[in-house]
Amino acid sequence: MTCFILPTHLLIELAEAGNVELRDVVPTLLASAALRAQRTTLTEAVQFLGLDADQLRGPASEFKAVHDVQQGDERGLPGVLRRKEGDGPVADPAVNDAFDNADRTYDFFRDVLGRHSVDGNGLRLVSSVHFGRAFDNAFWDGTQMVYGDGSGKVFQPGALARDLSVVGHEITHGVVQYTAGLRYRTQSGALNESMADVFGSLVKQHALGHTADQADWLIGAGILGTQLQGVALRSLKAPGTAHQLDRQPGHLRDYADLPDDGNPRNDSGGVHINSGIPNKAFHLAATRLGGHAWERAGRIWFDALTTRLGVSSQFTDAAAATVASAQALFGGEVTNVVRSAWADVGIG
């Protein structure tokens, strides 16, 4: 399923509360439905047939490139090429934001974690901006990143491509696709979303040089529009507090047991909702270990993602995997910190 930064259930709830017009919600719902089958097929091709996105999309010469959809829909992707590797900034801020933040995210994965692009083998990073008309979302579609302009009601205009944690989140979905391939439903899907939040936050922390104690642990800080009131889209430090409709739990006892029935209200079994639980586990581990979160906690989670987790992994599997990775990378004291972080969110 296409991985949207803003879950469609939030758009529906905003519409029902009268914060946004129903007609503003429809484009995202239609895009989600149109792209769901595509991303499922691509993920399965990557996992089981050994294909890569370049083979599926066709040849191109640019390693990093940003295109302009010109307010078109998924049929117009990737759009008109506006900036490619080696080019300087252009007149369009959205193009520059998408290019520069993809560059920062790529540098983080390469320099900190030793991964060359999302597939580990130099796959080109393609981004498209100006998707739809005042489109309040950003997503990874299985082959590339796509950014709407925002309506001002849910997201500030231009904020989605401008926010590094959002860009890092979407690119990490590509990394997940080429590694564990966590299936986008219930707990495995919540782990997929959590990994995207974890590394989206770490990309921002790394760019700012923040320690775990200095970091805000927010995804999309300061980019919300007038009708989604709060500090950010999600908080790893305090799940459930980011905005007025945030119902992320931070402990397993509050797990939202939702069906994966195709109803957008149920969020594919709560993938954006229940991701608050593993998010909180990571935050606890990182802050207890101290220093820069990417140096130990980030390496542990990345090792678990790339070498130990699989398509159907559950929360208990993630706990066991990160504990095993902590032991392999750093030994007993760090391992105990990771184990206690999971225990403190109800996962033993």
Rank of each mutant, 00 (worst) to 15 (best):
D68P: 01
R36S: 14
H9L: 04
V311I: 15
A238R: 15
I273Y: 00
Y184F: 13
A281R: 04
F109W: 11
A285R: 03
N121L: 13
L113R: 04
K84D: 05
L309A: 03
N279I: 01
R265K: 14
I300A: 06
Q314L: 15
A45D: 06
T316N: 15
L160K: 00
D246W: 05
R83M: 14
Q70G: 05
S61K: 12
V146A: 04
E62D: 15
V337K: 03
L6P: 01
S128I: 06
N19T: 11
H116M: 12
G50A: 07
L11A: 06
R162Q: 10
G291P: 12
R133D: 11
W294R: 09
V69K: 01
L123S: 13
V175S: 01
D107V: 07
V338P: 05
W342V: 05
L233K: 01
G79W: 00
D149M: 07
R75S: 15
A33P: 01
G225C: 14
I277D: 05
A65Y: 02
D254F: 12
L236S: 10
V334I: 14
G240D: 09
T226W: 06
G276V: 10
N101D: 02
T43Q: 11
A328R: 13
D216Y: 10
A134I: 03
Q55M: 10
R57T: 12
V112W: 06
S275T: 14
G230C: 14
A134F: 02
Q47V: 03
R299Q: 11
T105L: 04
E74I: 10
P27H: 10
L236G: 07
V154R: 00
G181L: 04
P78L: 04
D87H: 15
A91E: 13
D141G: 06
G269Y: 03
R308G: 04
H116I: 13
G348M: 13
P59L: 12
V118Q: 00
G150I: 03
T8L: 09
G76Q: 11
S340V: 08
N192A: 14
F131E: 03
L309V: 05
A15T: 10
I5F: 02
R124H: 14
F109Q: 04
N96D: 12
G222W: 08
E74K: 06
V154Y: 03
G50Y: 04
G270W: 02
E62L: 10
H243S: 14
T306R: 13
R133S: 15
V20D: 02
N279G: 11
N274H: 07
G346E: 06
F135K: 02
M1H: 09
L11S: 09
D103A: 10
S325V: 13
G331I: 08
L113A: 08
N137M: 06
T307R: 13
D136R: 01
M1Q: 08
Q314H: 08
H67C: 11
L252W: 08
G269F: 02
Q248A: 14
G189S: 07
F48A: 10
V46L: 12
P249N: 07
E85V: 10
F330S: 08
L51I: 10
F282E: 00
L305F: 07
